[in-house]
Design a protein around this nucleic acid. Structure first.
Lengths: 315, 315
DNA sequence: TAGGATTGCTGTACCGGATTAGTAAAGCGG
DNA sequence: CCGCTTTACTAATCCGGTACAGCAATCCTA
């Protein structure tokens, strides 16, 4: 009997099955920029968790909020059993459609999105503040005092939090953040390059860059300026180590646990899909990892001495 | 009446709808490596075409052939109306599952996959041979005679075709390809770097690299070797210009019309989804574009002259 | 104005399974 | 060996729509 079924190549019609059971055994992962190097590992983690639970994972792209709204509608129409969003870090977007989806539809979990702690859905966060503090501390521990920062856009919470972490670390070391040592970029290569050019007159000996691609730009700027890295300038980046993989020298990076984020998000959504409506909400914040590579070195007096005039001391 | 429907937020159950109509108004795009910089534009093109036709586009990942097989099963189970595959360029994979899907299920179209001309599905191809010939001709026209080539893996048809185009261009110019000017890489940065190091003793004045990331590696190698680009070595890459976006100098690249490939693939699959089973098969080959940037320059005698001994002439 | 054609609406049979009720067969203890 | 419970299989109903048939009402033309 079973052999016959197999021989005839029978496959139950999942549409009919889903219509009857009201479950599709499918989770959807909504991503914004396909190019973002953080996605592949997130997908990896989520996919593994889903397969382990016997669920399928579908992907959908949503380049902007409007597309996200549409995409979510489509996925709800397809009756997915769960929704994972890893999208925009923009601050002032309207998230009402997420709440509506979560209310009427399947469980929703967001990764790295700016939502209040008491938002009615599970959240996976990265510790941008702590990571930035970690980066800055490293530079402080190496003896640097004039530590510049190229921040992400202030319209993104990632940019804001990282800057806040940087400033907190400085203050904890008794250093008042210097306006002239701060620049803002837009996460692009060019903005990173321009930022370091602009900062250079303030004579930083170390630099914490709030984004991986911007760090590549800063590295280029250092070469433009004839500044040796790490001899004349120590550099720490924040972001995906894979994105800066081909840079020379290898950039010391604050790494985000993205695979784990994907896994946790999937597990979260799967649990809720199985257990029915559980009103409790989880907000988990994942710690960053420091990946020491070649762009960080102890502060050396010689550079300062070789300059025309030593900068006014600040301590 | 319609207002009431709207106010109550009624949405027809697509599962039931699809079960009854046997159509899901959904196309699936199967991708292998999420990191591949060619995907975003393909997605762009395919998505636009699908939306224009009122279809939804879903994504699914399939890192290897086994995963691809599974993924296709899942998508067939979901009763998608069409399947676009843009996956592996490996030569000796078993494509039987594709044919089976096409036979029993929705129309299938492949982008850049090694299949015989008479395979029972639509194909979108890139003119790897022509593009490589175009690249090599450019270098020939600039006066170069010692043109090296870093080929992709011979286990990939992309690697083979590009190498063939390179050799054809040389022969057409009366130059017999020189074994010592040929190296094979695996499309990785490191292999490109190592390849140019290995080729250097053969004194090339120009280099055609069969892959974008390998070209970055070659560029690095040139710097390792103290060779100025393009002064001492002209360089043309094959692949996605975006992938080498941040390289200095800007790498002259043979560009693939990926957006168009996505669009054509979607249109193809949509047409078949609508028109029913049409036994004719289309194989379309898309021409490449030459993107002139900064790594190509005319051959200058001075370099040869400055060398210890001129290479044995070949023409 | 009658007859045939077009239009509009209602009713019913599916689509392909899951679920549950219903029934027959088998198992069990007394 | 009988009556009751357990197990096995069959039949009916439902999931939420689509599609087509059937019929009444309206329209057109000769």
């Amino acid at each position: 009997m079973l052999a016959t079924i197999d021989r005839l190549g029978y496959r139950p019609n999942r549409l009919a099955q889903s219509l009857a059971t009201n479950r599709t055994r499918t989770i959807a992962l909504v991503i914004s920029e396909l190019t973002n190097s953080l996605y592949p590992p997130v997908l990896l983690g989520a996919e593994a968790a889903c397969r382990a639970a016997g669920y399928d994972l579908l992907l959908a792209s949503a380049p902007d909020v409007e597309a996200e709204r549409r995409t979510i509608e489509v996925l709800l129409d397809k009756r997915v059993d769960g929704l994972i969003l890893f999208s925009s870090s923009v601050l002032d977007i309207d998230n009402e459609h997420l709440f509506r989806a979560q209310r009427a539809g399947p469980p929703v979990v967001v990764i790295n999105r700016h939502l209040p702690d008491d938002a009615p859905l599970d959240q996976i966060r990265f510790d941008h503040f702590g990571g930035a503090r970690q980066a800055t501390r490293l530079l402080l521990d190496l003896g640097h005092r004039r530590i510049a920062h190229i921040a992400g856009p202030s319209g993104r919470f990632t940019g804001r939090l990282r800057r806040a972490g940087y400033e907190a670390a400085l203050r904890a070391a008794g250093i008042e953040p210097d306006r002239r040592l701060l620049a803002e970029g837009d996460y692009s290569f060019e903005s990173g390059r321009a930022a370091l050019h602009a900062l250079w007159s303030a004579r930083p000996t170390a630099l914490f860059v709030g984004g991986d691609v911007m760090a590549l730009g800063a590295l280029r700027a250092a070469r433009d300026l004839g500044a040796g890295v790490p001899d004349d300038l120590s550099l720490v980046a924040f972001g995906n180590p894979d994105a800066v993989r081909y840079a020379v020298p290898g950039i010391t990076t604050i790494d985000l646990p993205v695979v784990e984020a994907g896994r946790l998000a999937a597990e979260s959504v799967l649990r809720r899909a199985a257990d029915g409506r559980d009103p409790t909400r989880e907000v988990r914040t994942l710690a960053t990892n420091l990946l020491l590579r070649e762009t960080t070195a102890s502060f050396q007096w010689r550079e300062e001495a070789s300059e025309a005039a030593p900068a006014a001391g600040e301590s």
